[in-house]
Amino acid sequence: MSRAIDVFSIVLLAAAIAAFGFGVVALSDREDFKALYLLIVGALALRASVELLRPRSGAA
C-alpha cells in the first residue's frame, strides 16, 4: 500500500509538471481558458501529490 501511494504521488507530480507546461504553452498561444484550466489542474495535482506523502497530522 505504501509503495503504491509513493508511485501515485510521483504520477501526480508528473501530471502537475505536464499540466503546468501545457498551461504555459496554451497561455502563449492565446488560449486563455485552456491555460487557466491546466494551471488549476496542475496546482491541484501538485498539492495532492505532496499531501499524499506528507499528510497534515490532526486531519480527519
Partner: peptide, 26 residues
Amino acid sequence: SGASTIATTLGKDRSAGPGRRFTGVV
C-alpha cells in the same frame, strides 16, 4: 518546492505519524 518534499519523503515509515495517508485533506 513540491518535488523536493516528495523526493525526501518517499518511502519513509509513517507508523509514527498520522497513521494512514488517505486523510480527509488528501
